[in-house]
Amino acid sequence: MTTDVTTDETNGVAADGQPIVELRGAGKSYGNVRALHGVSLAVPPGKVTCVLGDNGAGKSTLIKIISGLHQHSEGEYLIDGKPVKLGSPREALDLGIATVYQDLATVPLMPVWRNFFLGSEVTRGPWPVRRLDIATMKKTANDELRNMGIVLDDLEQPIGTLSGGQRQSVAIARAVYFGARVLILDEPTAALGVKQSGVVLKYIAAARDRGLGVIFITHNPHHAYMVGDHFTVLRLGTLELSAGRSEVSLEELTNHMAGGAELAALKHELAQVQGVAVDELPEVGDLKQSAAS
């Protein structure tokens, strides 16, 4: 793995302002199956880069490459402008790339503060009788959660008793505390209701405002458009769209996400079914034009 990177020690971002993480024509093949091909992506500090796509679009493969779980088989992967081939998620984490998966890697019956330090516990005392420094971990967890705007009444409560949005927020705060410069969020709102999704989106914006580069993986264009600065749409393993917020509207993003041409074909098929009203749907020509733009 190449690890010769130059960073600004004051804030952990690339000294010359370049993207922290960048893919250039990256792809991944599993034998004869090409799961990802020709995908370019740049993640600057203090921005939310949204990656959208339907099931099978290549989002999971993209996460695995960036997080170090799998190595890319084509193109380039750069961290702070230097090409890398990561051998494990630990190597990615050492370079400040943290991933928060849907299952959150928490232990439901353990208290919040214990989950905050899970795998990185603070200890005190001489070896071999070192013991957990519970007071320090509780205070640190409380302070860091409050710094992110997360106020919990009782850090002793099992994390499994928190709402889905609160658990996601704790996972985000944990990644920020342990030095994440790039935060990858894997479908954090997929199983949440409207209110709890709003909680998670709030803390995504908070992480961005603290200078992190955020990769927000989602299949919901409405959630993406609320916090996103740049939008990348994947379709069948290839790049369907790459555009900044000022370059694409929510309607256009939704059409790219769903596939404008496929929607046009679906409207035509629905028009043949009795009892299905399609008059208020967009015109076929409009959908095709949106998909081609």
Rank of each mutant, 00 (worst) to 15 (best):
K202W: 11
L212M: 13
F231M: 06
G244W: 10
A173Q: 13
V233M: 07
S246T: 14
I172N: 08
E240D: 14
S249W: 04
S249I: 12
S163K: 10
D186E: 07
A206W: 08
G211I: 02
T232Q: 04
T218I: 14
V248Q: 04
T161A: 14
G165C: 02
D153H: 09
F178A: 00
L241S: 09
V151K: 04
E252V: 00
V248A: 06
Y203T: 05
G149V: 04
A243G: 11
D186L: 12
H223W: 10
N220Q: 14
A206M: 11
L201I: 04
T189D: 03
S242I: 03
V194M: 11
Y177P: 00
A205D: 11
V194E: 14
Q157P: 03
G165T: 04
H223K: 13
Y177Q: 08
L239T: 14
I215G: 01
I215E: 00
Q166K: 11
T161K: 15
K195E: 03
F216G: 00
V200N: 02
A171G: 02
I217V: 14
D229V: 10
H222N: 15
S169H: 05
A207F: 10
A190K: 06
D229T: 13
L241C: 06
G228K: 02
R174K: 13
T161C: 07
G179M: 11
M226F: 08
L201C: 00
D143F: 00
K139Q: 14
K139P: 03
G164M: 07
A180I: 07
E251L: 08
M137I: 02
E247A: 15
V248F: 09
S197M: 09
D143R: 13
E156Y: 05
H219V: 06
N142A: 15
H222E: 15
V176G: 01
A191I: 10
I159K: 02
I184K: 00
L192H: 04
G198P: 12
S246Q: 15
L241T: 09
H219A: 12
H219S: 12
K138Q: 14
R181V: 05
L152T: 01
S249E: 11
K202C: 03
D229C: 12
A224I: 05
D209M: 02
L192T: 08
R174D: 10
I184S: 00
S169N: 10
T218K: 12
R208P: 01
L155V: 09
D153R: 14
R167C: 04
I184V: 07
E187V: 02
K138D: 06
R208G: 01
G165P: 02
N142G: 04
A141R: 04
G211Q: 08
E252K: 08
Q196W: 06
M137P: 01
V170S: 08
I217N: 08
A175H: 02
L250Q: 08
S169T: 10
E156A: 07
R208V: 06
H230T: 03
R167D: 02
L241N: 01
I172V: 03
Y225Q: 01
V233L: 09
N142R: 15
A173R: 11
A191E: 13
D154F: 05
K139H: 11
I159N: 00
I204K: 00
V176A: 13
M148F: 14
E251V: 13
T140Y: 01
H219P: 11
L250K: 11
I217L: 06
D229R: 05
V151N: 05
I159A: 10
Y203C: 01
P188A: 13
G228P: 07
T232M: 03
